[in-house]
């Protein structure tokens, strides 16, 4: 078992978002600021890791005809735990994320990893694979959120980063970056850079 390979490869080489194009569904809407993006990334990592672990433990007992329903129930239970946890300890962020926490259930990364990996591998490997893919996903969210918050509101995690003297000299925040469609364009550019780098190797 190659721990490093399971954890590191999904960050770049088999990144679930940029290479496999999974799980972009619900989550671009949370990248207008860095903080909700971090929370979302962490939640998805936890859910992917533990659902992979649980399904891997159950994999010999699940009849293959009803496996989708079983997987959905396991994932939904984990998401409910995350949702209640966020409501209790990070209420502001959970309000910001609103329905997108619930939409982790239908995030294709989770179902994709369950189908492609957890059903055919042992529990520890599956857990690590879940962590790796969750981190790969978080990486993209954080990159997109970093640029959108920096250019859109001049802050990072709520702290002012661009010095006031810039604004006095005539610099203005790019209001377009906060609007939802810009998330798609930023991720398109991230994909472009990523693809050209992989090709040139």
């Amino acid at each position: 078992m190659n721990v490093k390979k399971l954890l590191i490869e999904p960050l770049r080489k088999t990144n679930p978002v940029t290479v496999l194009v999974l799980g972009i569904c619900s989550c671009l809407a949370v990248t207008a600021q860095l903080k909700p993006a971090l929370v979302m990334g962490a939640s998805v990592t936890v859910v992917t890791a533990f659902s992979n672990l649980i399904i891997s433990l159950l994999r010999k007992g699940i009849p293959s005809r009803i496996r989708i329903i079983v997987q959905l129930v396991v994932v939904a239970t984990l998401v409910i735990l995350i949702d209640q946890f966020l409501k209790a300890f990070a209420y502001d962020v959970s309000k910001q994320l609103s329905v997108y926490v619930g939409l982790i259930i239908t995030n294709c990364i989770i179902m994709g990893r369950l189908e492609a990996f957890a059903l055919s591998h042992g529990p520890i490997e599956s857990f690590l694979d879940g962590v790796g893919n969750g981190l790969g996903y978080s990486l993209i969210l954080v990159i997109v959120a970093f640029f959108r918050e920096l250019l859109g509101s001049g802050t990072l995690l709520g702290y002012q980063v661009i010095p006031p003297s810039f604004y006095e000299a005539g610099y203005q925040n790019n209001g377009l970056m906060i609007l939802p469609p810009m998330a798609l364009i930023v991720i398109g550019v991230v994909l472009w850079i990523n693809n050209s780098k992989t090709e040139s190797k």
């Binding site: 609007l179 469609p181 810009m182 798609l184 364009i185 398109g188 550019v189 994909l191 850079i193």
Partner: peptide, 23 residues
């Protein structure tokens, strides 16, 4: 289309532009 942008990349950007139009 530039090589690295072919396929999914350009679809993202087009969707973004369509989104701006829909705004």
């Amino acid at each position: 289309i530039p090589k690295g942008l072919q396929g999914i990349g350009i679809s993202f950007i087009i969707t973004g532009l369509m989104g701006i139009a829909f705004m």
